[in-house]
Amino acid sequence: MGDIIVIAMLAVATFFAARSVIKNKGKCSGCSAKNSCSACNNNKNSIEFINKI
């Protein structure tokens, strides 16, 4: 019984962790935690040469 509870909890935790990791792939540490951070915002708006992408 205990096994099943632990596995279930682990599965849920893994699911949410994995979802968050996939969703925030490639983001900086601040943005992946809060969707946006001041370090990035201050230069997200700075758009030098990105238009080439």
Partner: peptide
């Protein structure tokens, strides 16, 4: 700014580090 950086560190521990 401290909280942003600190929180991001904690959250990563709970997600990518946990995995």
């Amino acid at each position: 700014s401290t909280w942003e950086r600190g929180w991001s560190f904690i959250k990563r521990a709970g997600t990518i580090i946990l995995l």
